[in-house]
Design a protein around this nucleic acid. Sequence first.
DNA 1: ACTTTTTGTAAAGTTTATTTTACTTTTTGA
DNA 2: TCAAAAAGTAAAATAAACTTTACAAAAAGT
Lengths: 66, 66
Amino acid sequence: MKNSLKVERAIMDLTQGELADKIGVSRQTIHAIEAGKYVPSTVLALKLARLFGKPVEAFFMLESTD
Amino acid sequence: MKNSLKVERAIMDLTQGELADKIGVSRQTIHAIEAGKYVPSTVLALKLARLFGKPVEAFFMLESTD
DNA sequence: ACTTTTTGTAAAGTTTATTTTACTTTTTGA
DNA sequence: TCAAAAAGTAAAATAAACTTTACAAAAAGT
């Protein structure tokens, strides 16, 4: 799973910490997702989608390895 | 998190087992998600979205408790 | 150059997703 | 109505998400 969270965050002009607060997770969780360390739950993905005003598919994309 | 997986599955005319096979998870995982026992990963949600030809938001919806 | 903010990293611990196996109940179809 | 298929349930085990704390590196602002 790839994601363009970093870009969306830049568009919204938010730090990792600010985004984490808005979504209700720790800063490290945001960092880990951006770094591709793990895949978030669907709840988290939907919260990000709501915040970004875009569908989940717009910033989370499946890869052949998934 | 609510979901209408059961409906989407009915539209596609698939059993829990068939859907599980197509997505690459166990039948119990499909059942548990339909029963609201737990929330799937974003990878799983995206695979379902691809299969159903609909965005994730079409069959997974946040609740006030999320 | 110095200070502050932001980001990266890492380890230990907790919670939650997912699998496997197995058994029961319900639904479907002949 | 009987048999087969599908769905519900449950417990134990494993993997993965997420938190907390804490510190190092990098970036940004003055």
